[in-house]
Amino acid sequence: MIHIRNAREDEAELLSEIGVRAWQKAMAAIGEGDAMVDAARSAFFNFVASSWITVTLIEWNGHPAGWAARESLDEKISDFWIDPAFVGHGLGTALLQNIEEDIAAQGFDTAMMQTHSGNSEAISFFQKHGYAIHWLSIAYNPKLDRDVPSVGLSKSLESADDGTYGLV
């Protein structure tokens, strides 16, 4: 059973480890993860410990299985991580729908996110859910201490006549 809730302050270690496992899976396909795993682990922990209030956690049968964050509590999804051990149960779709509902409820008409340009699994996932790529860039990431090629994706959340959103 899927349960979505706000993260708690005492879950920083747990959430950072979920993030690291998901990040390692994504980076394995790109081939750059091994050299950066310690920096990534530190970045995840520091982020979750300081910004846990912006994190939404998804559980599968009582087990924490993934999380998403909106670091600035705006329309941008800053983090989206599903533990590889829990992929394939619809958790990503449920979590994304929850986050999009929060964004729309706060009056934003667009959801945005960015990911590594080589993260084809994430790009495909978001495109399957109505996101389109709008830009490509290479920018310095201070958390990882290196340049990272990224793509930006967005999706309209405008309401349809029947009260639903995201169908535009």
Rank of each mutant, 00 (worst) to 15 (best):
R8D: 10
V148N: 06
G107F: 03
R8A: 12
E75R: 04
H89E: 03
A28M: 03
L95H: 10
N119Q: 01
N46D: 12
W23Y: 13
G118F: 05
I103P: 05
V20M: 12
W81D: 10
S72V: 06
A35V: 11
D10L: 04
L96R: 03
A85M: 11
P64D: 02
G19K: 01
A39D: 09
A7Q: 08
E158N: 10
A104E: 10
L14N: 00
H63N: 09
A39W: 02
S78F: 02
P142R: 12
A35M: 09
A28L: 07
R70G: 12
W52I: 06
V37Q: 13
K76N: 10
H116W: 04
T93A: 15
E32L: 01
G31L: 04
W135S: 12
F108N: 14
L95F: 08
E11C: 06
A132R: 14
S154F: 05
P64T: 04
E17L: 03
R21T: 05
K128D: 02
E158F: 03
A104N: 12
G33Y: 01
W67N: 03
S72C: 02
S72W: 08
A22N: 06
V168M: 14
E158S: 10
A49Y: 01
M1V: 11
G118E: 07
I77P: 05
W67Y: 15
M113G: 04
F86H: 15
G118I: 00
E71W: 09
S159G: 02
P84K: 14
E13F: 04
H89D: 01
